[in-house]
Amino acid sequence: MPVLRLALHFIRRDLRNRYLGSFSGGLWALLQPLAQLAVYSFVFVYVFKAKVPGSDAPGYVPFLALALWPWNAFAEGLSRATTAIQDNAALIQKVAMPREVLIFAAVAASFLVQGIGFLAIIVALFAFGVPIDPFGIPLVALAYVQLFALALGIAFVFAAVQVFVRDLSAALPQLLMIWMFASPVFYARESLPEAYRSWMALNPFTHYPEFIRGALLHTPAPSLAGDAIALASSLAVLAIGWVVFRRLDPHFENFL
């Protein structure tokens, strides 16, 4: 219980920190991905005139929007959590505390902020007449929690490794950009040449846009087996991340 309380404290602190001193406060959380959505939609629809299979009926904007917010939560959570230990070095070198709380708080705060934006955009799309299936929303919520577990597992490894090898945080933005383009965020898996489609299954993030679009827009969704594999792999990543973190945790102080 005290650990949970501590986690809540750090989540609150993280949220307050983000918007401290900015005029619009929490509004930025919504504005930033909206701007992203507008730019990407303009570029892909009007400049490239992208033909996106599976997105013909509802249009490109909802297709992209349903993947963009989960990706932002995932990427932001990872990049914030990676430096969480290093950023709080002054604290953990002076005060005894469970360090995993810092990682948890960084990822959870990102998922919270982007999750609210995500919900808002789903409601907005529905209001604008996009044929969104409201009964898919609980399923999407479950997938979102599963994505959180995956992100947390990876974040544990990244944060621990970052303490030892500082290059990780420098390489992370590039890594995340490549990762985004290697995931079906801007496009559907079906747009890829036949030979590369099966490779996408190796990317743990692939499942989530496909599942969410399937649940809300009824585009081709992963099979039940695919869902099971995704669930198992996210839990496995979380377990591995936890083990790695626990193993390296007693040695952080020697390398900070």
């Binding site: 490794v161 090898v165 390296l248 040695h251 020697n254």
Partner: peptide, 19 residues
Amino acid sequence: SYPLVFRARDRLRALWRLL
């Protein structure tokens, strides 16, 4: 005891050993 790490390479090796 504190490990003797001077260069980035030592840190990488220390990480590997601990893992």
